[in-house]
Design a protein around this nucleic acid. Structure first.
Length: 154
DNA sequence: TAGGCCATCTGGTCCT
DNA sequence: AGGACCAGATGGCCTA
């Protein structure tokens, strides 16, 4: 396609600073093995496909708070009681922390899914390795600008 | 081996 | 009150 070819011209490549476009070989590894699994911070193997099955609904809300003091409202402590406003600090239990970690993992997983979809939309012919997230964003910006330019000049 | 990239954990803040 | 979002820290993997 001519549009794609001209978008992928060397002039365009120059705009993506940290992308190495010199070697143009077929894109073999769209999905690295790393994408299907990972290891947690303790080096334990994790299957990322299981993230969708994670369920935190069994955690009870009374498990979630560690009372910092009998008088304090549940889960909240107060920082800097001196002059200004007291800052409220939420104290969470390990159960609540684990639940938050699971939610964060799910959130990052969906973020990566979105990046994967964006990778599929950005033309990267004969690119030897999978685009990183920052490369994907930069290339998408350039591609959108390029297509906008085409539309405006027609 | 250094540097880049990424997953994960964590605590703080924002929002509903 | 609690989930979503964000950024910093940390450690593993990979490549030049």
């Amino acid at each position: 396609m001519d549009v794609q070819r001209s978008f992928l011209s060397p002039a365009m490549f120059d705009l993506v600073g940290d992308v190495d476009f010199v070697e143009m070989v077929p894109n073999k590894s769209v999905l690295a093995p790393k994408e299907t699994h990972s290891t947690d911070c303790n080096g334990r193997y994790q299957d990322l496909t299981s993230i969708h099955a994670l369920d935190i609904s069994t955690a009870r809300s009374d498990d979630f708070y560690a009372l910092s003091s009998p008088a304090a409202s549940p889960g909240l402590t107060v920082n800097g009681s001196g002059n200004g406003k007291a800052k409220r600090k939420r104290v969470i239990s390990t159960v609540q922390r684990r639940a938050a970690n699971v939610r964060e993992r799910k959130r990052m997983f969906s973020l990566n899914e979105a990046f994967e979809r964006l990778r599929g939309k950005v033309p990267t012919f004969a690119y030897e390795k999978r685009l990183s997230r920052i490369e994907t964003l930069r290339l998408a910006i350039i591609y959108i600008a390029f297509m906008t330019d085409i539309l405006e000049n027609n």
